[in-house]
Design a protein around this nucleic acid. Structure first.
Length: 469
DNA sequence: TGAAATGTTGGGGCG
DNA sequence: ACGCCCCAACATTTC
């Protein structure tokens, strides 16, 4: 008897999973497989927060498969060897998977596909991570886009994304299941349990993803355009980690949002598409600025200041609130990501790659395409990026987008009693105000590590020097 | 998906 | 009634 392997990666769901559906439709028994392969991911191995999420998501996927009469076979790398061994043991003659777009993974997968085909196994790959396949979107000159708006306009003019596929109801298993290790054997969870904040904030897995989408469509979508920039209001979808791990697919989101008010949100999905488009066409950008002149930028790679930023001790409340939200929950509001990013790159002149690395390790939604786009945008060195001289004022941004200071109070509790008028600039508050709030600056909460006005001038001078050289 | 500096306009107080 | 100044509000330029 023949059978089909379905190799799960960042598509940890049963619904709208074309690889799984195609395998089921083939009619032979289906063996779902996950292979943990950190050494094959190149420089960008899942960080600690992502590994925590992956652990939960794999268990959820296994539970979902068991409800369909199946189960998840979990193994460790090397992937090709593992797949071959499973093929021999189960007499599988076809392997199905959904494509990934990270440069190291693309080349690994091509090798695996070729070697499997050379040994007589059929390979079927699918796109389910993106609404539009990166190769199919081109300028009229046939080149990749480097500006978002024409890119997205071209996407919207091209063929409408396919309707999402239903989840299979039952999966036929083999007579004998191959050996699997328990998910815990992958040692994805931290040894010291620091993940309490993550557990409170998230419900990884396909059912949690679906619930998050429902909640957003019912409560959030109408106010999205108005609230999406407000970290003190739960105005965003919080779908990013679910999308990254493929617990829900962009087609499902697209399909669920056919109402007219969805435009501004779907545009954000457009940025996700654009990020993957750029990563595919400019594979060096996770490490290298797209605009090469930024290699000559006079950065100040100060490890001590980097540590202060990472721990949320800069003395700028909106920056510190963001960094602590990230550390506690594995996530940060996008507006605040731009603010802390601008602060690291422009106020501290620390290379954007340090920020990207920190986000990579601490975000549950760490995604190579999105993270790369975000940091190159912030640093001004990417495609369609914010110009370098567009500096965020951390006080002004705080007052504009967290006017009552509720976001700061939540994540920087030592400032909880500071009145709204001073909460984004406590160093300017009268001594009596600070005394009444029960804090001593420099002791309970740091004084600003740099003076923003001076830092701004310094950044503009550095930018000028880069351009002159 | 910036912010500061600089320029312009117009209303109102006041001699 | 008139001119002058001040300043807020808004627009434009610059980095």
């Amino acid at each position: 008897m023949k059978c089909s392997l379905v190799w799960f990666r960042f598509d940890l769901r049963l619904a709208d999973n074309p690889a799984l559906t195609a395998a089921v439709e083939r009619g032979e028994p289906v063996i779902p497989v996950f292979v943990w392969s950190p050494a094959e991911e190149g420089k960008w191995v899942a960080g600690a927060a992502s590994r925590w999420w992956l652990h939960q998501s794999l268990q959820s996927l296994d539970a979902g498969l068991r409800r369909c009469g199946s189960r998840l076979i979990v193994r460790r790398e090397p992937t090709l060897k593992t797949l071959r061994e499973l093929i021999v043991r189960t007499r599988a003659d076809a392997v199905f998977w959904n494509r990934r777009y990270e440069p190291a993974i693309v080349s690994r997968d091509q090798t695996i596909q070729k070697k499997l085909q050379d040994s007589g196994v059929t390979v079927h790959t699918f796109n389910t991570a993106l609404l539009f396949e990166p190769d199919t979107i081109r300028t009229t000159a046939g080149k990749p886009f480097q500006v978002f708006t024409p890119f997205w306009r071209t996407c919207l003019k091209s063929r409408e994304p396919a309707a999402p596929l239903p989840a299979p109801r039952r999966l036929q298993g083999p007579k004998r299941w191959p050996v699997s290790v328990p998910v815990t054997a992958l040692e994805l969870e931290p040894e010291i349990d620091w993940a309490g904040g993550l557990r409170t904030a998230w419900r990884p897995g396909e059912p949690g993803a679906r619930a998050a989408l429902r909640r957003f469509i019912n409560d959030g979508l109408c106010g999205y355009a108005a609230d999406r920039d407000r970290p003190d209001v739960a105005g965003t979808s919080r779908l990013s980690p679910h999308l990254h791990f493929g617990e829900i697919g962009p087609r499902q989101v697209w399909d669920a949002m056919r109402s007219g008010v969805a435009g501004p949100y779907l545009r954000q999905l457009g940025w996700r598409e654009f990020a993957h488009h750029l990563l595919v066409h400019f594979p060096q950008t996770p490490d290298q600025p797209l605009r090469p002149e930024y290699d000559r930028f006079p950065w100040r790679d100060d490890g001590k200041l980097l540590g202060v930023w990472q721990r949320g001790r800069t003395g700028y409340p909106i920056v510190d609130a963001g960094m602590r939200e990230l550390w506690t929950t594995g996530w940060m509001h996008n507006r605040v990501r731009m603010i802390v990013g601008s602060f690291l790159v422009k106020d501290l002149l620390i290379p954007w790659q340090r920020g990207a690395k920190w986000f990579w390790d601490t975000l549950v939604d760490a995604d190579l395409a999105n993270n790369t786009l975000g940091w190159q945008w912030t640093a001004g060195c990417g495609a369609d990026a914010a110009p370098f001289f567009r500096l965020f004022n951390p006080v002004g941004q705080g007052e504009r987008f967290d006017p009552e200071g509720a976001y700061v109070r939540r994540w920087v509790p030592e400032l909880a009693e500071v009145p709204a008028r001073w909460i984004h600039r406590p160093w300017q508050a009268p001594v009596t105000v600070l005394r009444d709030a029960g804090i001593v600056l420099g002791k309970d909460y740091p004084k600003p590590i740099v003076d923003h006005a001076a830092a701004r001038e310094r950044a503009l001078r550095a930018f000028g020097r880069m351009r002159k050289r």
